[in-house]
Each structure stands twice: as structure tokens, then as C-alpha cells.
Write a protein that binds this DNA or RNA. Structure first.
Lengths: 149, 149
DNA sequence: TATTGTTATACTCTATAACTATA
DNA sequence: TATAGTTATAGAGTATAACAATA
């Protein structure tokens, strides 16, 4: 039996915690936390708007968690909720101009925080990490409902 | 500016969340959660006992969080707290026989959960991930106070 | 009947500060 | 005065269940 330091699950949680901490600290100047930032960023990635259901799926959260996050971003004037013409059950969340500008600034801050927390890894190693995690994330998404807005 | 899906910090948090969820589900049959498991496992890794301060440092937690975690493990008969002879301020936490046996079972369960959550990555890719994260974790530890029990 | 969004609730985790006992 | 552990508290994150509106 290996030691805890070799446990992949533990290592992921440990490093993720450090990176989230650093990113939250970096994002504080924009009055954002990583959770809100991720919702804003994903919204910006979908110019036509994205449903709250899909936001939840992409972020690995429960749909009920999305409600208050979007509420906060709406209150800050960074995104808007509008009814989808095709299906009036769904709300399409779209970024405002202010939201897009904030997203740009926040992305730089968050990336700098993460890079700092992972500075013991070379740029190439960080790139390898990104490729592996991206592959796992894409697979996780494709499994849980391949389609839908 | 890249998309959120290329954000290393986001990917770490996203995948870590999936893996922790899977590990918690797998550990339920042993009435453990990953957080308690990590304390138990680390305690087992130090046969002579480990101070709560060091537990906190290795796990990336605040010392105040360790108290109740150790309390729970003591109540379950998995670890013991005893005063260090050299410095009576420090409590050395040591695993009991039952604790060591549970750790073995729990480690297998947690590893299986993590492997399942990361099944889209080959064994080799998971090994690469482990090496990179291990390097980052070791560096993080060496920075914050290189020595001490 | 099934799905989207919402509300409510309970529990876990994180972050800080203050306190005690020892050194 | 500094350090190990403890207590307390507030806020953020996670997990479920139930409900209204719409399909």
C-alpha cells in the first residue's frame, strides 16, 4: 500500500485547494470568487446565451446552485437572464458588455494566481497537466448527456 | 483569451470535485469521508506519531480543522492522541491496529473511486498526472516551513 | 409525464480570531 | 514572547427534496 502522498485523489484535492485559494485571493480586487468567475466566463463563451441547466452540467454543479450565482451576477450587471423563444421553460443567460470586460480582467488575474500556485511546475509541465485534465473533463461531459443546449 | 475549458485552475477544481465525489461514495461503506480518510492515512504513514500541526501542514488545512477530525477518529477507535514526551504542548497522533486495518480497506475503496472517475485517462496518463501533482505538492510543502515534526 | 428553474434545508468545508497551556 | 492545540463563529460549498411553470 502506497503513502497518502502518492494517492491521486488526495493530490488532486490538495493542489486544487491551493490553486482555488490563490485564485480567490487574486480575484478579490474584482470582487469575484472563482465560482462566480467560472459562471461568468462560461456565459461569455456562449455568445447566443446558455441555459442554466447547461451551466450546471459544464461546471459539475447542481442546477439549484446556479440560481443564486446567476442572481449575483445579474445584480452586478454582468449577465442577463432572458426567456428562450423556443422553450419558455429555459432562461438563456448572456453576458453584458460590462460582464465581458470584467471577464477579461478576471481571467488574467485567475490565471496569474494559478500559475503562481503551480510555479514549481515548468510551463511545459503545466501544459501537460492542462491536456490531461481537459481530456478527463471532456469525457465526463460527454458521458452525462451528450447533447442539449 | 482562451475558453474556460482551457483554464487550468478551473480544470483542477472541476476534476477534483468529481474525484472527491466518487471517493466519498466509495468510502461510505467504511463510514468515512475523504477528509477523515486523509487524516487516518497520513497518521498511518508516521509510525512514531505525527503532530496535529504537521497533519494540518501536509493536508493543506488550518490546525483548527484538525481538532474535530482527530476527535472523530479517536471516537471511532482508529487513532489515539498522546502527549509528546519532549514537548508537552504537542499531541502525537498514532493509528491503532483497527485504524491501520481500516486504512487498508479505505485506501482500496478510495483508489477505486478515483480510478473510476478518471477512467477516460489511461493508466499511463494517470501516472503522469500523479507525478506532476506530486511534484507540485512536494514543492508546496517544502516552501511552507522546510522542517519540524 | 418529463423538464427547467426555483426554494428550502441540512450538512460539510473554509477562514479568522481569540483563548489555554506549555515552552 | 512564541508555539501547539482548542473553541467559536461566520461564510462558502455540497447534497437532496419538493414545488411551479412549461413542454
Amino acid at each position: 500500500m502506497g503513502e497518502l502522498r502518492d494517492d491521486l485523489g488526495f493530490l488532486l484535492a490538495r493542489i486544487s485547494g491551493d490553486v482555488v485559494r490563490a485564485a480567490n485571493a487574486a480575484l478579490a480586487v474584482e470582487s469575484l470568487r472563482v465560482r462566480q468567475y467560472s459562471v461568468l466566463a462560461l456565459t461569455c463563451d456562449f455568445a447566443e446565451g446558455i441555459s442554466q441547466r447547461r451551466l450546471a452540467r459544464e461546471l459539475g454543479l447542481d442546477p439549484s446552485q446556479i440560481v443564486s450565482l446567476v442572481d449575483e451576477l445579474v445584480a452586478a450587471g454582468l449577465v442577463e437572464r432572458r426567456l428562450a423563444a423556443a422553450d419558455r421553460r429555459t432562461r438563456l443567460v448572456t453576458a453584458t458588455g460590462a460582464g465581458r470586460r470584467k471577464r477579461e480582467r478576471a481571467a488574467n488575474l485567475a490565471a496569474a494566481g494559478a500559475r503562481e500556485a503551480l510555479r514549481s511546475l515548468s510551463d511545459e509541465e503545466q501544459a501537460t497537466l492542462r491536456v490531461l485534465l481537459s481530456k478527463a473533463a471532456t469525457a465526463a461531459l460527454d458521458e452525462a448527456e451528450p447533447r442539449s443546449l
